[in-house]
Amino acid sequence: MKRICQLAEYGFFRCVLFICDTLPYSVTCLVARGTANLWWLVDKRRRIVARDNIIRSGIETDPKRALAIAKKACHNMALVIVESLRSTDFLSDDAIDQHLKIEIPDDVKAVLEDPEQSLIIASGHYGNWEVAGHWVSRYKPVAGITRAMNNPYIEGLVKKRKSRYRFRPIPKHDGNTGRFLEVLDNHEILALLFDQHAGEYGMMIDFFGHPAKTFKTAAILHLVTRAPLCFASCHRVGPMKFEINFSPLIQQARSGNKHEDIKAILSSLNRDLENTIRQDPTQYLWGHRRWRD
């Protein structure tokens, strides 16, 4: 029975892919928005979480307006999926300039162009992080943590699609930090999304003025391995048009106080993410319970 359900899901997913691959982009977006609207109606719990998070962040105080932002953010998630599935088409060498504007400081560019250096890129669930990962893989292979699909058929298909660019997934529940070190040893890029509730591996760091358990992996890897670290975001400015912004390299000298060093790095990353979100709050994934008091 389970297998039949998985095959049915797989069939549905193939249909979605077919729609994405064959229909004009504008039509695909309409379908995605429609699906997101349905999801919005059904998933009441996430709707409330998103609204409350927006209010707590101080970005909006009125519950109705907060809910409107949350709904647009739900549309954004649907767009992320559509854009990511089509990113190979519009990120080809001859089309890339029409779709992407890149702001990259000299120090980060130098690291990307140096075959002997690795780079840790910390980012959040804002805009389209997948597009940023795809673009940066032009320089070096990118590895990042991904959550495996429950359905093995869909998982296989997604892996096949992602292999079209140089992305290596590290399973979310593989707790072996050795995998990260391997990436850095190979002078590749380690892309980490740090803005989800970190549980026991986290450190309480202010996010929009409220303490949130923040993953400290990027910070401790930077402090121990000395691998360069920066923040990056990918802001959608129009249909299939994005601005990718990199922060300068985060230079945190070791003070001898590990807790304070990690806190300084994570505070800086959270501030960068807050500033990015303020640009357009509708492009952020608000539905995640980041604050768990």
């Binding site: 707790g175 072996n176 930090t177 050795g178 070190l181 391997e182 040893d185 591996y201 992996t217 401790i220 890897l221 402090l223 121990v224 391995t225 070791r254 001898g256 590990k258 060093d261």
Partner: peptide, 24 residues
């Protein structure tokens, strides 16, 4: 100790003992 807490440990070893060990 898991792999992440070992990284924490490496920071402290370097501070207290003054020796840098390769994480890997």
């Amino acid at each position: 100790l898991d792999s992440l807490t070992i990284l924490d440990l490496l920071y402290d070893i370097e501070e207290v003992i003054g020796i840098h060990l390769e994480a890997k």
